[in-house]
Nucleic acid binder design. Structure first.
Length: 195
DNA sequence: GCCTATCGTGATG
DNA sequence: CATCACGATAGGC
């Protein structure tokens, strides 16, 4: 069985102040299909050393070229550098046996305060747990900003790691950037205890 | 099903 | 700046 990310992997969200200068990327084969991962380097908060953080994680739903174009379009000012070795290193940390007690996975994000708070709320959702857009809005203390929350959810660059698939609409309609079918698969898998 | 309230974004001038 | 159109929504009818 193809490896999948650890169920209770801890995600450390690191806000960026500007788009990454360079994004090192490569493709991965996962249980739910091919993905493209991109990383950048961000400064540690404690010392001045840099660390590698994931800033892009897209499903490749058609082909690599199309997904590359999506990344290119989202990050027009960043240099995209193919770097299989670096991505493999990160992937080895992310996938495999349950990493429940291991170190947090650094994820670099760029967005408004509102978007950051939505994404932080998403990361708090546990595997197998779902939440509606309106529940999320209420949790943020912005009960009427439902559409705004949905917009922010949709801007998530890092699928799976920021688990936007766990947000569902109140009548089960539930859209997803990479297709409602994949979203259902992910949810079913997370509820099935088949890690 | 259609209609409308709602609100952060991004585009546009 | 001001304005406008646009959603991965929800609720009323």
């Amino acid at each position: 069985m193809m490896m999948w990310f650890a169920r209770n992997a801890r995600i450390q969200l690191i806000p960026m102040e500007s788009p990454p200068k360079t994004i090192s990327y490569s493709c991965l084969t996962t249980k739910f299909g091919q993905m493209m991962m991109g990383t950048t380097t961000v400064p540690f908060t404690v010392d001045s050393k840099d660390q590698v953080a994931i800033c892009v994680l897209y499903f490749i739903d058609e082909n690599v070229a199309k997904t590359y174009d999506e990344v290119r379009k989202r990050w027009p000012k960043s240099d995209l550098c193919k770097d299989d070795a670096r991505i493999q290193l990160v992937a080895d940390k992310l996938f495999g046996p349950d990493k429940e007690n291991s170190e947090a996975i650094p994820v670099a994000i760029l967005g408004s305060e509102f978007q950051l708070s939505v994404w932080r709320a998403l990361v708090d959702l546990k595997s197998g747990e779902t939440c509606t857009y309106s529940q999320l809005a209420e949790r943020m203390g912005r009960p009427t900003a439902i559409r705004a929350v949905a917009n922010a959810v949709a801007k998530n660059e890092v699928s799976i790691l920021i688990p936007c698939h766990r947000i569902v609409s109140q009548n089960g309609a539930s859209k997803y950037h990479w297709g409602a079918a994949l979203k259902q698969q992910l949810l079913k898998f997370e509820k099935s205890d088949s890690y």
